[in-house]
């Protein structure tokens, strides 16, 4: 695929004996927003560091616009904009000063520089505080300034590494809106997150990564379709431990049920026919002496996809 903006092939990264990224391949086309979804420690940041040319891959290649990216390929890096997970800004300088410095490093000069800085300040909504030191910003404002610096030189590929971690809901919304606006500019975006809703809302295509491996990839619809026409049904159930265990076994025997995920008080089931399964579950419960306190039927989503692929929840408890 010659017109891919980013093309990762068989990326591998080892840290001593630990394999953090294990044969990841994906591509992003022009103007596409690609989400890398996975729990903490799945290998998202390591993958991104290789894509941004900060880390030497142990194996595989990264090409951006046909040029290979390594820590030494300085020219090609001009096409990339990185928004690191940390607030990588000079706290003793203002947002404008930070933007000017990083933009100049990218080769922006003169009126183009000034225009571009004003543009990105507008996009992230910091125009009125641009002259203040980063030190004086709230957490959300710092995040937005962080993003502004990453996109000031109009990169062909913008990489955002968990830009909403630890941000209050209001700022988070502002950030998501900024990123959403980018898709209209034709920028290709690589977005990592462990928030399923963000990936669903922003991304054209999503790659699911777990334990260093890319285990599924596609549009949201494609991924959900992998589950078939299944629905997730969550039962809250109570009763003797043995009884509940037996009841869960019963559930897996029901028609159209594909997975049964035990929960602390009950179980989550993916199935084809929800109504039939719910009825079967109730009658099984009655036989076992298990009380069903509630039923929750949800349309299939990425959470369910992740669950069905890895057998574990995307967010452990958080």
């Amino acid at each position: 695929m010659a017109d891919l903006v980013l093309d990762c092939r068989d990326l591998v990264r080892r840290f001593d004996s630990l394999v953090a990224v294990d044969g990841v391949s994906f591509g992003i086309g022009p103007g596409e927003t690609y989400g890398l979804l996975g729990p903490n420690g799945a290998g998202k940041t390591t993958t991104i560091s290789m894509v941004a040319g900060l880390l030497e891959p142990s194996g595989g290649t990264v090409t951006v616009l046909g040029q290979e990216i390594t820590p030494r390929s300085t020219t090609a890096k001009g096409a990339i904009g990185l928004v690191p997970q940390d607030i990588a800004l000079y706290p003793d300088l203002s947002a404008r000063e930070n933007l000017t410095f990083f933009a100049k490093l990218q080769g922006l000069r003169g009126s183009e520089l000034a225009t571009r800085i004003d543009e990105v300040l507008d996009i992230v909504g910091l125009a009125d505080r641009a002259g203040d030191k980063i030190d004086t910003y709230s957490g959300g404002m710092k995040r937005r300034a962080n993003i502004a610096v990453g996109m000031v030189h109009q990169p062909t590929l913008l990489i955002l590494d968990e830009p909403t971690v630890g941000v209050d809901p209001q700022s988070r919304n502002a950030i998501l809106e900024s990123v959403d606006a980018l898709s209209t500019t034709g920028m290709a975006v690589l977005y990592t997150t462990h928030y399923m809703e963000e990936a669903e809302r922003l991304c054209d295509r999503i790659g699911i990564i777990d334990s260093g491996k890319l285990i599924a990839e596609g549009t949201r619809e494609e991924l959900v379709a992998r589950l078939g026409d299944s629905t997730a049904v969550t039962f809250r159930a109570d009763g003797p431990v043995e009884a509940v265990r037996g009841w869960r076994d019963d559930l897996s025997q029901l028609r159209t049920v594909s997975t049964v995920q035990p929960q602390e008080y009950g179980a989550t089931v993916t199935c084809g026919h929800a109504s039939e399964v719910v009825a079967g579950a109730f009658s099984a419960a009655e036989k076992r002496g298990v009380t069903i306190g509630g039923v929750d039927v949800t349309a299939p989503d990425l959470e369910a996809v992740f669950l069905s692929l890895t057998g574990k929840a995307l967010r452990d408890g958080s």
């Binding site: 903006v5 022009p30 103007g31 951006v64 616009l65 046909g66 040029q67 290979e68 390594t70 030494r72 390929s73 300085t74 020219t75 090609a76 890096k77 001009g78 096409a79 100049k104 490093l105 990218q106 080769g107 922006l108 183009e112 571009r116 030189h153 109009q154 990169p155 062909t156 500019t185 034709g186 920028m187 290709a188």
Partner: peptide, 20 residues
């Protein structure tokens, strides 16, 4: 510095065309 050929840019991307 690797790569002597200028990077092919997507038409939508303006901005910096070369690194200083």
């Amino acid at each position: 510095m690797t790569g002597s050929a200028p990077p092919k840019l997507h038409p939508a991307a303006g901005g910096a065309t070369h690194s200083p």
